[in-house]
Design a protein around this nucleic acid. Structure first.
Length: 157
DNA sequence: GCCAACGTTGGC
DNA sequence: GCCAACGTTGGC
């Protein structure tokens, strides 16, 4: 099993938004970065765990845990001319962009703020903490995942 | 292929 | 609002 971090601006879609979906799932669509696309298309597997991170907000930080419930599939918004994610270069027979489906597992309450993550020696090397890190879908090493769980006070089986 | 200009991200 | 870092675009 692998670990990931997804960024979202809570003003547009928060962890609470995900948790209040009828089945607590959503399709993570609209990613338009090739490195992130490669993760979505090639590397994510059902059962992988996801840190749900709130960016560009008053207190950025980890707001919840989610899991991958469907592996990568073509992102339909790229084919919709009306969509803000429309990309005419992506064709159904040769898609450029991919999505996965995730499900909310549990909230991190209170939110684990970025400032706390920065204080942790154990999290040195976490992509999120790298200066200039902008990738919206990131890989998380298992030892970093365990450190985050500890900081969040979450016991895992 | 180089690289300047530009738009976006996202912490602060 | 500021601004550094980054990805993309397009002229050459």
């Amino acid at each position: 099993m692998a670990y990931w971090l997804f960024k979202s601006e809570p003003i547009s879609y928060s962890f609470a938004s995900l948790a209040s979906e009828p089945d607590r799932t959503t399709s993570w669509e609209g990613v338009r970065n090739f490195q992130a696309r490669n993760f979505l298309r090639d590397e994510m597997r059902v059962g992988d765990k996801v840190l749900f991170y709130h960016s560009n907000t008053e207190t950025p930080g980890i707001a919840g845990i989610a899991e991958v419930v469907e592996a990568g599939s073509p992102d339909p918004t790229a084919f919709e001319p009306g969509s803000k994610y429309f990309d005419p270069k992506s064709r159904p027979e040769k898609p450029t962009w991919y999505q996965v489906k995730i499900r909310a597992v549990r909230a991190v309450e209170p939110l684990l703020p970025l400032s706390k993550l920065r204080e942790s020696d154990e999290l040195k090397g976490l992509e999120l903490l790298r200066k200039g890190s902008r990738l919206s879908v990131q890989s998380v090493a298992p030892e970093h995942w365990r450190s985050v769980m500890r900081l969040a006070g979450i016991e895992e089986e």
